[in-house]
Each structure stands twice: as structure tokens, then as C-alpha cells.
Write a protein that binds this DNA or RNA. Structure first.
Lengths: 138, 138
DNA sequence: TATTAAATAAGAAATATTTCTTAATTAAGA
DNA sequence: TCTTAATTAAGAAATATTTCTTATTTAATA
């Protein structure tokens, strides 16, 4: 997603483009992988030291509501990542052969933790049985 | 890792095998993917309603110290998973060709969330540049 | 520029997680 | 069985996360 698309989405929903909101969007646009609310907050504070963490919560949640971000919860921690447009991650059914897209990239939660390797690409392939076939494998 | 191996490790470190500790070990042995401290606590409580959450924290951390569990932190949430012996997840350097094992499976954090698909197998392949080659790609 | 609905900061409140203290209990070996 | 160091439950304390309230400010449009 490009910044202009995201801004258009905001306008379409009659949301204003405040400096804090724009910065949060920039942070997410320039980020591979998930960020916790706190991590985003820390980065926003570098530019707006007075920013309220509530502002960060509100904006991340809003960006999720209009499908700019994906949200996930680990324990009690809310985390966000830019929505993917291209899905390289699929689940293939061993019986019917249907391909299901994973709307999350499991690697994204980890990608920031890999320090000693410059990742160029990755691929995830899951095989198994889909909802329809799992009860009727023969 | 089999249960007897884990128990031997405990003995080797002069740790006692209390019922609470054994249950926590059983829970982790029968679990694909990461569990948060709270999730483990909820399961232990089904058997020992009086258990202190501190006991869960203490034991999970101890099992990590003796290399039975892997620990990771998401935000402020501590999560645990059994250590893997067989690594299906590798990073391959595009220059020197070395294979590096990933000591975590990024899928494990997600595997519990996939409800409509019965996973039989999966594979993760990451390509890029290793520490030595990233500064000297030609 | 003036208007106004949306967004903000500040602070408090509500939850949740993690750690600590203490006294009682217990697993394991003598 | 006895001894003892390890472990536990309980409760409090410390920290961290998330949500709410209110008064003020501001982006966008007329």
C-alpha cells in the first residue's frame, strides 16, 4: 500500500489527516513486520514528545478499521502491521487441491528479531486438509 | 524431547519433580506452538485450582534455563514453547550458500490460530545474505 | 476567516502482567 | 522415618497495558 492510497482511504471515511496520524502511518509504512502499540508510541514520541499513548491506540485501531493495518493480539498485547496485498503464503489441501491464502505472514512477527541475516525473500508452504475434506479424507 | 529426557535434565540440575512442575511439563509436551504464561496457568488451574501463578512463572522460566523450553517475549508477554530438535526451517545465504538453522519456528506462534485447516506439514525457506556476506556481496 | 466535527493531551481509572516476601509444605536422599 | 533444601500458596507490590473522561485544540470545508 502506498501512502497516497492510505490517505485517500482516510479522506473517504471523513477522517482528518493530523500530523500525529500521518506520522503513525509513516512509521507503519516503513516497517516490515509487527509493531506493538508501545513500540509505535516510542517512535512517535521522538517527534511529538507530548503525544498521548491514547492517541497511538486510537489511530492504530482506526487504521485497522479502514483496512490499512492488520491487528493481532498476543497475550494481552495488541500489535499491528501493514496489510499485505500480495500473498506468498498459502495452504494447499492434500485432497481437493484447493489453495487457501493465509491473510497473515507468520514470519512477520519474527522478522525484526533476525539480526544477522539480510532477508531477500521467503516462502511458506503449508499442506494439510481443508475444512471440507478433513472429515472425509477417503 | 521426550518426557523422560526432560525429567532427567531436572534431576541432573537437582530440581525436584513436583506435581505442579510435572503438569506444566506435560502441558508443554502436548502443545504445538507457543503458550503464554496465562494460558499455561489456566490449564494448570484445571488440575490444581489453588496453584499460584507465580509457580507457573517460576517453572516455565526454570524449564527454559535448563534448555527444555524456548522463551520469547512479545511486547511484555512472555511465551514458551518446547525446544525443537529437528529444524525444518533454514536460512540460506545467496552468496556463500551456507545453511543456517532457525532455532524458532515462526509458524508456531500462529499455528493455534488456524482453525479451518488440519496441518500435516509445513516448510519455511528464507533466502538472503548472511552476516559475513552482507557487507561484501560481489 | 469562521465554523464545527474530529482529534488531541492530560490525567485518572481499569485491567493485566510480572515480581517479591513470607510462612508453610514437600520431594528426595540419608 | 527423618532431615533439609527446594518448592509452594497467598497476598501484596511493582510494572505495564488498555480504556475512559474532559477540556482544549485543530483540520477541513464553507
Amino acid at each position: 500500500m502506498h501512502k497516497q492510497e492510505a490517505i485517500k482511504k482516510l479522506k473517504d471515511h471523513n477522517y482528518k489527516l493530523t500530523p500525529q496520524r500521518e506520522l503513525i502511518l509513516d512509521i507503519m509504512l516503513n516497517q516490515q513486520g509487527y509493531l506493538s502499540v508501545r513500540e509505535v508510541y516510542e517512535r512517535v514520541k521522538e517527534v511529538f514528545p507530548q503525544v498521548s499513548i491514547d492517541t497511538v491506540y486510537r489511530n492504530l485501531s482506526l487504521l485497522k478499521d479502514i483496512n490499512i493495518l492488520n491487528e493481532t493480539t498476543i497475550g494481552n498485547n495488541i500489535m499491528y502491521v501493514m496489510r499485505k496485498e500480495i500473498h506468498n503464503h498459502t495452504m494447499r489441501c492434500l485432497k481437493c487441491g484447493k489453495i487457501f491464502e493465509l491473510d497473515i505472514c507468520p514470519l512477520e512477527l519474527w522478522i525484526n528479531q533476525i539480526k544477522d541475516f539480510e532477508i531477500v525473500d521467503h516462502k511458506i508452504e503449508i499442506v494439510g486438509y481443508c475444512k471440507d475434506c478433513r472429515s472425509n479424507k477417503n
